[in-house]
Amino acid sequence: MFETKIRKVGNSCVLTLSKEALAVLDAAEGDTVYLVRTDDGSLALRRHEDDFADAMDALEVGARRYDKAMDALA
């Protein structure tokens, strides 16, 4: 587990990741990462991968298109 703080920078808040955390993510400065809600309601930090990004785009399109059906199933 890695600990970090949320800091205010201008009008935004940022998380600082240690060198060790970046190594685990296989990420570097300037890379795109995603915060993803997991089944238990927590958040996971994911490195950008084309397949994952495509899947998330498809999920967003489907969620908008079938929002009433998804609400009925929930």
Score class of each variant (00 low, 15 high):
37 R>G: 07
62 G>E: 06
19 K>V: 13
2 F>T: 02
41 G>Q: 07
11 N>G: 15
3 E>K: 11
7 R>M: 05
4 T>K: 06
27 A>Y: 00
28 A>F: 07
46 R>N: 00
37 R>W: 11
61 V>T: 10
65 R>I: 01
57 D>L: 15
6 I>V: 03
5 K>H: 05
12 S>C: 11
64 R>V: 09
50 D>K: 12
54 D>P: 03
66 Y>D: 03
59 L>Q: 15
40 D>E: 10
27 A>D: 04
10 G>H: 04
26 D>N: 08
5 K>N: 06
52 F>C: 11
11 N>E: 14
31 D>H: 01
66 Y>V: 03
10 G>P: 00
28 A>R: 03
32 T>M: 08
19 K>T: 15
63 A>R: 08
5 K>S: 05
5 K>D: 04
68 K>A: 08
24 V>Y: 14
26 D>R: 05
58 A>P: 02
34 Y>M: 03
7 R>L: 03
62 G>I: 05
45 L>C: 09
42 S>I: 12
40 D>L: 06
69 A>Q: 08
61 V>R: 02
66 Y>P: 00
30 G>T: 06
53 A>P: 01
34 Y>C: 03
20 E>R: 14
29 E>Q: 15
63 A>N: 11
28 A>M: 06
34 Y>W: 09
24 V>N: 10
35 L>T: 12
21 A>L: 08
63 A>Y: 07
24 V>W: 14
38 T>G: 12
33 V>F: 00
12 S>P: 05
55 A>W: 07
20 E>Q: 14
49 E>R: 01
43 L>C: 15
69 A>C: 06
69 A>L: 07
62 G>H: 08
31 D>P: 02
22 L>P: 01
8 K>E: 11
55 A>V: 09
19 K>L: 09
14 V>A: 11
61 V>P: 00
45 L>K: 04
18 S>T: 14
17 L>H: 01
